[in-house]
């Protein structure tokens, strides 16, 4: 009986997840009247703005991930090692982006970093890119911090650090050679979530007027019928490809493979 309920729950979940996807795929193939074709995909891929915006967003995602890792890994490590008492406070701070809408954050940025401020980041394209990257890092903070913190919980941070220190290692060596490799799976999980957030993010990119993939998808969705469905399927495929890549990387790590 319990087994039957489990299968019914699984089937309902699968239908809920796959049905819209199948519908989108099916719709994206019907651009040419009376036949299935990849015409919508061809048009999307032929559009130079597709590659431009996707390339921009991928670059932003990579930059955000690098910045996020550099910010979060040492912070989570230090909090766990030296200041465990303030962990609840740090967790609360990292949760704030979930309750503060992106539009509020970006308006705050614009007000703080506009051309008449001390740090006029919005005055140049590069400055705005940096600002957008900070914004993305803020949005991804709850996921990245939790992923890294969970990874750190799985290892004895204090003893490993002390062992390394007793062998003469400094903080940079400890972080780069011991902590980061041992939380790499967790970091990759956070990186994947960051990637997914950045690729689909609309509000910040649109309000900072940057040529990102999110605003492009919105623009296409407002003006075309079949191409947005094809674009959604492509974005979905990219996201899943990233997840597969992450799995591959973790599989090639001998010590983590054995621990699973």
């Amino acid at each position: 009986m319990t087994r039957a309920f489990a299968w019914i729950a699984f089937a309902l979940g699968a239908i809920y997840f796959f049905l819209p996807l199948i519908g989108t795929v099916e719709f994206s193939l019907r651009m040419l009247r009376g036949q299935y074709s990849f015409e919508a995909y061809r048009r999307v891929l032929a559009d130079p703005r597709f590659l431009d915006t996707l390339g921009y967003s991928v670059a932003m995602a990579v930059a955000t991930i690098v910045f996020g890792v550099l910010l979060v890994v040492p912070t989570a490590f230090w909090v766990r090692l030296k200041m465990p008492r303030i962990r609840p406070l740090i967790e609360f701070i990292t949760l704030l982006p979930l309750v503060i809408p992106a539009i509020v954050i970006v308006f705050g940025y614009i007000r703080l970093f506009n051309t008449s401020s001390i740090l006029p980041l919005t005055g140049s394209a590069m400055g705005t890119n940096v600002l957008l990257m900070f914004g993305y890092a803020t949005l991804a903070l709850p996921y990245m911090y939790r992923a890294v913190d969970t990874g750190l919980r799985a290892i004895d941070v204090r003893t490993l650090t002390e062992a390394a220190q007793s062998l003469g290692a400094g903080w940079v060596t400890i972080l780069a050679r011991l902590i980061l490799p041992n939380v790499l799976v967790a970091v990759l999980s956070g990186a994947f979530l960051t990637f997914a957030i950045v690729i689909g993010e609309f509000t910040m990119a649109a309000l900072l007027n940057r040529p990102a993939f999110g605003p492009y998808m919105q623009l296409l969705g407002a003006n075309r019928a079949y191409e947005p469905a094809a674009l959604a399927v492509i974005a979905f495929a990219i996201t899943w490809a990233c997840m597969g890549l992450m799995q591959l990387v973790t599989r090639f790590q001998k010590h983590t493979r054995a621990q699973r």
Partner: peptide, 9 residues
Amino acid sequence: FQAYALFPN
């Protein structure tokens, strides 16, 4: 150390 503290990676 009591807990060995070998670097797992």
